[in-house]
């Protein structure tokens, strides 16, 4: 298994270079370093000298990807792409274009993101599986039908509606939680309870329907019929056998997102005023801060790759027939 993991990690390097290259190209197709300088320096009284100085200080005065004026390896090395990319592979994200230490910001901002994303993930998984089981248990009845209709309706509603509707109902009409904001420690609870509930409810439609399909597929297998024939109760069949055998597709969807929980939610964090990494990324895109955008895309890619490897490992845990070689 170690060899397999090492091999997968090595595969990750060209993927990360590719992602980095793509991010770099897309970003600089839309924004030139001059544009970035203008955004950062403001709209009034921006002189060409100030732009040149800003670019020089941040290393944006070099050629983008190929330095024809340089010698030898420096042709590739003395460029914005190389200088900004190489350090990231050592997880040195450097400074944002406005001068803040990115690693410090990430370390600080991942906790509020996790405070919401982790419970939403765990509770959501539990609720979705339970609801899907319920529908599978009452399959082909009106309860199942009503459940599926409810799921389709819930997944058809925009996530933004849940957020605004939730804020309106829970905070504005019922006065139960703050509409938005955040605080540290235990005080965070009253701020995260609403986004958490909305995150869970918003995910029920798609999640439950997906798990119901998996459970129904499993429920028609021979071993299930055998279990029933042996007189096991339906609950024992569902939770003891169907759920266990449905774990592989569940894990495929679930484990891969665990590392990405660090990255937070872009929309939810903005609406609830949560100072997490989701709003950090959105702010950076709006401010055209390439240093942060690049770091966050890189981090997202790394976490996704880690998620995929963890998924593979988790297969071996739930299915003894699988060996990673």
């Amino acid at each position: 298994m170690i060899n397999y993991i090492l091999r997968r990690l090595l595969y990750a390097i060209p993927i990360l270079i590719g992602v980095n290259l793509l991010t770099f190209t897309l970003f600089f197709v839309v924004n030139t370093p001059d544009n970035m300088a203008r955004i950062h320096l403001g709209v009034k009284h921006v002189t060409p000298d100030a732009i040149a100085k800003w670019k020089h200080e941040r290393g944006y005065d070099k050629p983008l990807m190929w330095n024809g004026a340089a010698e030898g390896a420096q042709k590739a090395a003395d460029t914005i792409f190389f200088e900004k990319s190489v350090r990231m592979f050592a997880f040195d994200f450097g400074r944002s274009d406005e001068g803040r230490n990115i690693s410090y910001d990430i370390r600080t901002r991942m906790w509020p993101s996790l405070a919401i994303a982790l419970p939403v993930f765990a509770i959501g998984l539990l609720v979705n599986i339970t609801f899907a089981m319920l529908m599978a248990f009452f399959r082909a009845t009106y309860i199942d039908f009503a459940g599926v209709v409810l799921c389709v309706a819930m997944m058809s509603i925009s996530g933004l509606f849940y957020i605004i509707g939730g804020q309106y109902l829970i905070s504005k009409l019922l006065h139960l939680t703050p509409i938005s904001g955040f605080d540290g420690g235990l005080n965070a609870f009253k701020f995260v309870v609403l986004p958490m509930a909305i995150g869970v409810i918003g995910g029920i439609g798609a999640g439950s329907r997906w798990y119901r399909t998996i459970f129904l597929e499993e429920a028609t297998r021979d071993y299930v019929r055998t279990a029933r024939a042996k007189g096991l109760s339906e609950l024992a069949v569902l939770f003891g056998h169907v759920l266990k055998n449905a774990m592989i597709p569940i894990l495929t969807g679930a484990v891969v997102v665990i590392p990405l929980l660090f990255m937070g939610s872009l929309i939810s964090e903005s609406f609830f005023g949560i100072p997490g990494l989701g709003s950090y990324t959105i702010d950076a895109i709006n401010a055209q801060d390439f240093a942060i955008v690049r770091a966050m895309v890189f981090l997202g890619s790394v976490l996704y790759i880690v998620g995929l490897i963890l998924t593979d490992i988790s297969y071996t845990l739930v299915d003894p027939r699988i060996r990673l070689e």
Partner: peptide, 11 residues
Amino acid sequence: LEKESIPYWNK
């Protein structure tokens, strides 16, 4: 920090 106008107005 209040990025969205709806929560801001309601508060």
